[in-house]
Design a binder for these strands. Structure first.
Lengths: 135, 135
DNA sequence: CTTGACCTTCCCATGATGGGAGACCCCACA
DNA sequence: TGTGGGGTCTCCCATCATGGGAAGGTCAAG
């Protein structure tokens, strides 16, 4: 397979496939003409990467997960720890975004949203109340 | 005020203050010696930026909000629209992160997390079930 | 043998932030 | 008056994941 086919087969762009190679996540063979050559194992790695990325794992985690995947004597505890650490990070981030959304929703609820200039949202940004919703 | 004092007064790093200036969010005066000079109005702008950033607004939104803040004939509807669009973006992002966390938590719940290699998390990454939790 | 579709490498951009180098400035203290 | 330490200036580079685009090589079909 050449890179375009590998991209179609894995759902990863050619750009990113080359990038993943450049950071050492995979090592496709080369043809005589310089083209990269992907086998089924390479595509499996690319798919693995994609699924990990879909779950929000940063590439450094993906690197560790790939190493564990290849290591048949791995301890599932190691995989689990990476996963649960990531879950904690995801949930913290989600909470943070939700808190922002809630604060803003609260402010927007008190904004008339008409042609007049008075607006508690702008007021809060300019001059936040020390009390009220914590951030 | 010189930049260090403005940074302390606004809670924004010197680096970022210079950056915000470079993208046109504020225009501090210059002293004879080339040092930037910040007045109370500048610090108020910096504070405004910080509060907007704390609420997750991207700098492009901050730019618009600043323009509306300065425009005393603004329509509060314009502010509100920016805010609610941002709330929608925040909530969508939060939902996305939570979905990832939930999927991973589900996988981790079925992982022994011991010294043995068997691990549904790795299995799923390598070979995702077409059925099961949607992503 | 040309044309078009593919591949290669290299540079640049995003968004928000920080690190660090090298040069300049200023004030206080000896 | 000199010097040391702390401020500031600009400029370049890095992060993280991704993409755009240019300039040039390769291949297969017409």
């Amino acid at each position: 397979m050449i890179i375009g086919e590998a991209a179609a087969a894995s759902g990863i762009s050619q750009k990113m496939i080359r990038h993943y190679e450049s950071i050492g996540l995979l090592h496709p063979a080369r043809r005589e003409n310089g083209y990269r050559s992907y086998g089924d194992a390479d595509v499996a790695v690319l798919r693995f990467i994609r699924h990990a990325r879909d779950l929000g794992f940063p590439l450094e985690d993906v690197r560790r997960l790939l190493a564990l995947w290849r290591d048949h004597s791995r301890a599932s505890a190691d995989v689990r720890r990476i996963a649960l650490d990531h879950v904690a990070a995801l949930e913290e981030k989600a909470r943070s975004l939700q808190a922002m959304a809630a604060s803003l929703r609260h402010l927007a609820a008190h904004c008339q949203g008409d042609a007049r200039p008075d607006c508690p949202i702008i007021d809060e940004l300019a001059n936040p109340e020390p009390e009220g919703t914590q951030r």
